[in-house]
Design a protein around this nucleic acid. Structure first.
Lengths: 101, 101
DNA sequence: TGAGTATTTCGTAAAAATACGAAATAGGTA
DNA sequence: TACCTATTTCGTATTTTTACGAAATACTCA
């Protein structure tokens, strides 16, 4: 415990994206959205063994992590992958698992 | 909530590895081990702004996730990346971020 | 045997994640 | 205007994570 310095920006980002992926329901949702390109919250909820409100919470976590976007079109909300951040996350994980040396 | 079926093995594994990566200290430790190939718990602890016992806890999480291995050589313990599972995790994340369609 | 070193385990406290059902929101339709 | 539908937010309970310091472990060396 000699160094009180915080973590690098890369480490923080990695951890943030990883945390978003750290629940099987959220992994499922992302894979589902990759296949569907876009779909409604209800379509997702139908596939998952949990209450609507819990699914909504997981969607919020993914939204806050920047991995998905929702476009409001009442009474439904259409969700899709946020491509920009998705690409960033992909690059981060790739670099992480393939070290330079 | 119409389907009470659990998640696929892939989803569970992804989530498990992602959870191991979901704290910046653990990301740091893994990057450190990638560079060092192998090192002692003390070497890691020196680099991190937290108590020894907390670092030990993070090492335990990584060990339980299968991403690192420790070889006991008292009074020290030498840690290194578990290459087999590392390769599996790498493949899982790659496939996840690069969908077929 | 007794001290020293590196590390983990234990006990505990505080914060965050997960889950539910009920209530709120916000627009479309009769 | 009053209802319907899809979704989120709220309040709450339970579990898990994170962190610390003190004590335990396990081996080496004097």
């Amino acid at each position: 415990m000699t160094q009180a310095q915080p973590y690098s920006a890369t480490e923080e980002k990695m951890a943030r994206y990883a945390k978003a992926l750290s629940h099987p329901a959220r992994v499922f949702i992302l894979r589902f959205l990759e296949q569907q390109c876009a779909c409604f919250a209800g379509d997702i909820s139908e596939q998952l063994p949990m209450a609507n409100s819990t699914v909504s919470q997981h969607l919020k976590v993914l939204k806050e992590a920047g991995l998905i976007k929702g476009s409001f079109n009442p009474p439904t909300i259409e969700y899709c992958i946020d491509k920009e951040n998705w690409t960033e996350a992909k690059a981060l994980f790739e670099a992480f698992f393939t070290p330079c040396c």
